[in-house]
């Protein structure tokens, strides 16, 4: 290496002042540290739920060693209703069924109104009501779930005179609407304009173009949005507190009070009884598993399309 290039490289190295160099390194380190702080709670929550929830779900007792742990193992969690206060051995069948039924009922409202809203926003952009509906849908999306619970309470529980699964489903459905509207609108807008024009050029009326060409093309994305909205409302307990209220027996009648997993987790976790706390942990693991599987499937679905 000639003396000239050596001088050049060394001068180039010195242009980066030590201050700038250290700042760069320190900030990089801080960013890494902050990321660890962000991710750590999640890992802790997962580990905790896996360890405690799994043992609670199958009634395992690891204090007796690995072999003895399975002595009293059973599936009561999935097949029984909660035992009377202070007794052992109950399950959460009522809550599991209640959650599934209320989600199904909520989907009727959430999907029907949500997809129609998405179609309206994406396909009729020149309609005078379009900006209003979009704005109100956004505003609805920001309203806290517990406030929606108060609204459903006033609409259903006060009118009917008693708590009901239907009132809970109504609150959950209201919460689903803005999420479905937003994703449906975005996905429908991704369908190229030329596809619509091709349909219209064949002489199809606009509604057939939307129903037969645009919607099928966007179906994958819309289903993803619906599943994500389901995953979102499945974990909501706040709007169910004074609508579905909870029920210690298995009830599939939507006009009667109904239980749900998040409700039972809330009641169990704040309860003084060990047995209720055990059920709450198992319920939390099941709820998280349901939500994660739904979100994973939703991702898979959108990737396939």
């Amino acid at each position: 290496m000639s003396a000239a290039t050596k001088a050049m490289t060394s001068s180039r190295e010195t242009t980066l002042s030590p201050v700038r160099k250290t700042t760069n390194a320190v900030m990089g380190g801080l960013i890494l540290l902050a990321t660890v702080v962000v991710v750590l709670p999640l890992i802790l929550i997962f580990l905790y739920l896996l360890r405690e929830g799994f043992a609670s779900m199958f009634n395992l007792d690891f204090s007796k060693g690995f072999a003895g742990a399975f002595q009293n193992a059973n599936l009561n969690f999935f097949t029984h209703v909660p035992a009377p206060e202070g007794e052992k051995g109950g399950g959460m069948l009522n809550a599991i069924l209640g959650t599934l039924e209320m989600l199904a009922l909520a989907s009727v409202i959430g999907v029907g109104v949500g997809v129609a809203g998405g179609i309206f926003l994406a396909e009729y952009p020149k309609h005078p009501l379009m900006p209003t509906i979009r704005m109100i849908s956004d505003v609805l999306g920001g309203i806290p779930a517990i406030v929606m619970g108060l609204v459903a309470y006033g609409l259903m529980v006060l009118t009917m005179g008693h708590f009901s699964g239907l009132a809970g489903a109504l609150a959950l459905g209201f919460l689903m609407i803005p999420i479905v509207v937003r994703t449906a609108e975005e996905v429908l807008k991704l369908v190229p304009q030329t596809v619509r024009e091709a349909g219209l050029a064949l002489g199809l009326p606009k509604w057939l173009v939307i129903m037969k060409i645009v919607l099928p093309a966007a179906a994958g994305g819309i289903i993803t949005g619906i599943m994500l909205s389901l995953a979102r409302v499945a974990g909501e307990a706040a709007p169910l507190l004074f609508t579905a209220f909870g029920n210690n027996q298995v009830s599939t009648d939507p006009l009667k009070p109904m239980s749900a997993l998040p409700l039972e987790i809330f009641r169990g976790a704040t309860s003084a009884y060990d047995e209720n706390q055990r059920l709450a942990k198992a319920g939390a693991l099941l709820l998280i598993a349901m939500i994660f599987v739904t979100s994973l499937l939703a991702r898979r679905f959108s990737r396939l399309k």
Binding site: G235, A238, A269, Q277, I291
Partner: peptide, 14 residues
């Protein structure tokens, strides 16, 4: 995606 009640449970128990 973790529901509010599950955070509450973790906060309370841990």
């Amino acid at each position: 995606a973790v529901p509010s009640v599950v955070y509450g449970l973790f906060a309370l128990f841990v």
